[in-house]
Design a protein around this nucleic acid. Structure first.
Length: 207
DNA sequence: AAGTAGCG
DNA sequence: AAGG
C-alpha cells in the first residue's frame, strides 16, 4: 500500500488472479440482470464513453433531463439494482474500516478508447465515507487532483487487481481516467471478456 | 455537471 | 473552463 496523496491509498495487486476471476463472475452476473447502459451529460445530452451499470441499493446514472443522481432502479429495465456481492462488502470492510456498508457500486466498462474526464464525486450526502475503487483488465492512466479543478494533478497507473481508497481530504478531490493503456497481456477475465478493455468498480456511501 | 473542439 |  502506498499513500499517493493525502488520504489516497493505492493497493497494487490487492486482488490476486483467483480473486479477480471470482469478482469477474459476480460482475458478469450483475450485468446479465442489469444491462450496461450509457449515461449522458446533463443539458447537452452528450454520451459518456463508458458503459455502466450498478449493484447495491442505489446506482449512479445521468441523463439530459435529470442530471447526475442516484436511483434505486435501472433506467431501462425499471428493475431494482442487483444486490451487492458479498465479496464487495467484505473488501469494503477490510480496506475502509467504515462502519456502514456501501450503498452503491458503480460498474464502469471502458473500451480501449474510453475516458473519464476530471470530476468530483459530489452526488452523495455522506462526504465522510471513503470511496473504494477496484480495477479489472487493462491498465489505465488515472489522474488525481485536488479539491479545486485547477489544482495540480498527479498520474498513477491502475492495473488489474489494484484497489484505490479515497478517504479524508482525498474524498473531495477531482479525479478521472486519461486513457486506457494498450494491454494484450491483461484481458478482462473470461466472464467479462468481450465487454471492453477495463472494468472499474466504485463503491460509495450515498445517504 | 463525469462531454469536447477550437478560438479569443 | 482549465488541463492532459
Amino acid at each position: 500500500m502506498s499513500e499517493i496523496a493525502r488520504g489516497a491509498f493505492h493497493h497494487p495487486g490487492y486482488l490476486d488472479a483467483a480473486a479477480q476471476a471470482a469478482l469477474a463472475r459476480d460482475i458478469a452476473g450483475v450485468i446479465s440482470d442489469a444491462p450496461l447502459f450509457v449515461s449522458r451529460m446533463p443539458k447537452s445530452g452528450l454520451p459518456m464513453s463508458v458503459r455502466m451499470t450498478n449493484c447495491g441499493p442505489l446506482g449512479w446514472m445521468s441523463d439530459r433531463e435529470g442530471g447526475y443522481r442516484y436511483e434505486a432502479a435501472h433506467p431501462e429495465t425499471g428493475a431494482p439494482w442487483p444486490p451487492m456481492p458479498r465479496m464487495l462488502l467484505d473488501i469494503w470492510a477490510e480496506l475502509t474500516g467504515y462502519p456502514k456498508p456501501p450503498e452503491a457500486c458503480l460498474i464502469n466498462v471502458y473500451s480501449d478508447t474510453a475516458k473519464m474526464g476530471l470530476h468530483q464525486d459530489r452526488d452523495e450526502a455522506d462526504f465522510d465515507a471513503p470511496i473504494l475503487s477496484l480495477s479489472l483488465g487493462a491498465d489505465c492512466r488515472f489522474r488525481l487532483g485536488g479539491p479545486k479543478r485547477a489544482d495540480k494533478t498527479i498520474a498513477v497507473t491502475l492495473s488489474a487487481g489494484d484497489a484505490l481508497v479515497l478517504a479524508g481530504p482525498a474524498r473531495r478531490c477531482f479525479h478521472g481516467v486519461d486513457r486506457i493503456l494498450p494491454s494484450l497481456l491483461t484481458p478482462l477475465p473470461g466472464p467479462l471478456a468481450g465487454l471492453g478493455a477495463r472494468v472499474n468498480l466504485t463503491m460509495r456511501r450515498v445517504t
